[in-house]
Design a protein around this nucleic acid. Structure first.
Lengths: 254, 254
DNA sequence: GCATCGCTTTGAAACATTTTGAACATATTA
DNA sequence: TAATATGTTCAAAATGTTTCAAAGCGATGC
């Protein structure tokens, strides 16, 4: 394995797991302890990792974030993947779509490579980064003050930008949904941006895993009737589903 | 195997795997190390790949790591680091600064961890990603249509955002600088954003390595008198330096 | 057609440099 | 204290660079 390939392998393992051991790297990237040790030494100089006894961990700031993101991603990850796949039916070639921040919509973004040509607008830094090299996608990054927790842009600048655009579909996420209060999330500014987005599109499609139903989150985003479709996992409670359907909202169980 | 066939084979392998080793190419494209080495040398000149010890990696590779590797192999990398360090003297605690896209300003961004509290606005997706976890930094991402080549946002949305902000200092980059035409860059939309940025700050500081002097790039950004300071490498030609100083521009040789 | 010339490409060898794997003494952990 | 990991040093291996002669190839003239 080439040196650069080893470096790359180590860094990407680190991004995935947050830490690695020399033992696990042996026979994968190199047969010799010394070489691995030297690689870690080099990567530490580049501030790509911090060495520990027996291995290394991802660098300071990134670790917390990675852990949190990985954690959120892994919760209901399999369900989120199903939801993302099901959401694809609402994406059409040559269209412009809006994608919200959040792990489910991140999964959707990762599936957009299959289209020939799309325009995607997003306030998620994660999604922007994921799509930055996708040649089939015209990417509109919605700027604003970045929220470190969600890695998304919000605030008055984001709102102003959203008001100036219009598109067919908005794939929204939420932290809580119920028939009475509608969609909710924890951040007030995020909620404002979401509301603007809803206004600037023809159709809003909510992507939520089943655990979000009947859960309350601080800030109200919109009522259920503002949505056109909800895509969720087949684990969703039947009563809730039929309750929502009775309000005239289309539900897709993935 | 014909030369052109070898080139083709190497490039397509590179597209498939992201990296190749000379060993693997031996006996496939040519029996001789020398020939392969020469091929890689040629392809590197054509910017089809970047050579590494023992092989080569694809250019414009998606991963952070490869991109950084490409940067590091760049001739002026060491100079750019010096320039970034020197530029730090113009950054003050608690201030708001604007940072342009480009590899030199990216180096500057990486040094901002040493401040206790800063507000940073940038149109560079690279820089935004780099600073996403920095708890000492309030990050304003300037949104807009993303240019894949520079990983930066521009266009009318970016301009509009820039018009709405004001800050103390703008750290600008350029592809060409000379006393007559001033600062230039290759992208027309990028130039427009840069001009807006210059207008919205008190002081503009240009960060350029010495190779940018007396080089022409397509689009004019501004005249030299619009700048307050130029930070460049000590390799810069003395004549050019004194010529610019005579125009009343402060020059820092890093 | 074929020999010759000039140019480019190729393969190999010599030498410089970097990387690697192993050995051993030292430090750290349980 | 035993076990494990680390740092250091060194020779061997691998890779890069430079140089050069041989081979390949097109153009030209006979």
């Amino acid at each position: 394995m080439l040196q650069i390939e080893r470096y790359h392998h180590i860094v990407s393992e680190l991004e995935k797991h947050g830490s690695i051991s020399i033992k696990n790297l042996m026979n994968v990237v190199s047969p010799s302890r010394s070489t691995i040790r030297r690689d870690l030494l080099e990567l530490e100089k580049m501030h790509k990792l911090v060495r520990t006894r027996g291995g290394a961990v991802a660098v300071g700031n990134n670790t917390d974030f990675m852990r949190e993101f990985e954690y959120r991603k892994n919760q209901q990850h399999e369900e989120k993947l199903r939801i993302a796949h099901a959401a694809l039916q609402f994406v059409n070639e040559q269209e412009a779509i809006l994608i919200d921040e959040g792990s489910t919509s991140f999964e959707l973004a990762k599936l957009l490579g299959r289209f020939r040509s799309l325009t995607v607008a997003t306030c998620s830094l994660n999604i922007a980064w994921e799509l930055r090299c996708a040649e089939n996608i015209e990417l509109l990054v919605i700027g604003g003050m970045m929220k470190r927790k969600s890695l998304s842009m919000s605030g008055s600048i984001a709102e102003q930008t959203v008001r100036g655009i219009s598109s067919n579909r908005f794939f929204m996420t939420a932290d809580g949904v119920n028939a009475e209060q509608g969609c909710m999330c924890y951040g007030a500014e995020e909620a404002t941006v979401k509301r603007s987005m809803i206004k600037s599109v023809k159709e809003t499609i909510l992507l939520v895993d089943h655990t979000k139903f009947n859960k309350n989150a601080l800030i109200n985003i919109c009522e259920l009737k503002d949505l056109n479709t909800i895509v969720t996992g087949k684990e969703a409670d039947r009563k809730i589903v039929s309750r929502i359907q009775s309000l005239g909202i289309n539900i897709v169980l993935a």
